[in-house]
Amino acid sequence: MRITQGTFSFLPELTDAQITKQIDYCLAKGWAIGLEYTDDPHPRNTYWEMFGNPMFDIVDAAGLMLELRSCRRTFPSHYIRLTAFDSTHGTESVVMSFIVNRPKDEPGFRLIRTEEPGRTIRYSIEGYAAQRAPEGSRY
């Protein structure tokens, strides 16, 4: 199962040259860029671990690509997301995010059906990655 989250979720994987062009676009807009990673990409898991601090003062995509390569070396079997923030309104608002690394095997999610009183049926999803223990070695 291929996880689809973020701006370019339904496109084929971006190459490093395409990622660099997106970084250039973000920098031209004055957005700060951060890298985040996780081994559990549940859709409600919006708080991924940060790889370093957001880069507020970076002016060249080459510096960010260096950080991305370092993050990929450190977490080769994790999802890595590039996130751009717009701080022009006084708060950090995410304006763009997309996955720049994913594990070779994406286990996906299972649908859980629960019957409640009054013929109510509730559905939820659970990542297969969350069933594996310990955390951090789920893949």
Rank of each mutant, 00 (worst) to 15 (best):
S70Q: 13
R110F: 11
L82A: 06
N53A: 13
G108C: 03
S70P: 01
L64E: 05
T20G: 02
I99T: 14
M55I: 00
Y79D: 00
E115S: 15
I112V: 13
L66A: 14
T114F: 03
A84N: 05
H78D: 06
R110G: 10
H42I: 01
G90K: 08
I112P: 00
I33K: 02
I19E: 09
E106T: 11
G90T: 02
R102D: 08
Y79M: 02
G52A: 03
T88G: 04
N101C: 10
G30Q: 04
K104G: 12
Y47D: 12
K104L: 13
Q18H: 13
T38C: 08
D40H: 04
P43M: 01
Y123L: 12
Q18C: 12
I99V: 14
Y37F: 12
V94C: 06
P103F: 12
G108N: 02
L82P: 10
S97N: 15
I58L: 13
Q18F: 11
V59N: 13
F109Q: 10
A32M: 03
E115V: 15
A62D: 12
G30S: 05
L82R: 05
S97M: 13
T74R: 15
G34V: 05
E49Y: 12
R102V: 07
R72Y: 03
M55F: 03
L111P: 02
Y25M: 04
C26L: 00
P76S: 03
R72H: 04
L64P: 06
S77L: 14
L27I: 00
R73P: 02
T46F: 03
P54E: 05
W31H: 15
D57Y: 11
S70T: 10
L82N: 07
F85G: 00
R102P: 06
E116G: 07
D39E: 08
F56G: 04
D24I: 06
F85Q: 03
G108R: 00
E106C: 07
V59P: 01
L82I: 03
R122D: 04
G52Y: 09
P54L: 04
N45L: 00
S70G: 12
F98H: 02
H42C: 06
G108L: 01
Y123T: 04
E92C: 04
P103R: 02
I19R: 13
G52K: 04
W31E: 09
I23T: 07
E116I: 13
E115D: 12
I99M: 07
W48V: 00
R73E: 15
I80C: 05
G63L: 09
I112G: 01
R122S: 11
Q22N: 14
I58T: 09
S87R: 11
I80T: 05
F98M: 07
G90N: 02
G108S: 09
I23D: 09
D57Q: 11
Y25V: 05
L66D: 14
I33Y: 03
E116R: 11
K104M: 12
L111Y: 07
Y25R: 14
R102K: 15
R113K: 14
T91H: 13
M96E: 13
F98L: 10
T38L: 03
F109K: 09
M50E: 10
S93H: 08
D60Y: 15
C26T: 05
K21P: 06
G90E: 02
N53D: 11
E36V: 02
I80W: 04
M65K: 15
E116W: 15
D39K: 08
F85T: 08
G34K: 03
R69S: 15
S87K: 12
G63I: 00
E115L: 08
D105I: 15
A28W: 10
E92L: 07
R102H: 15
A61F: 15
I58K: 09
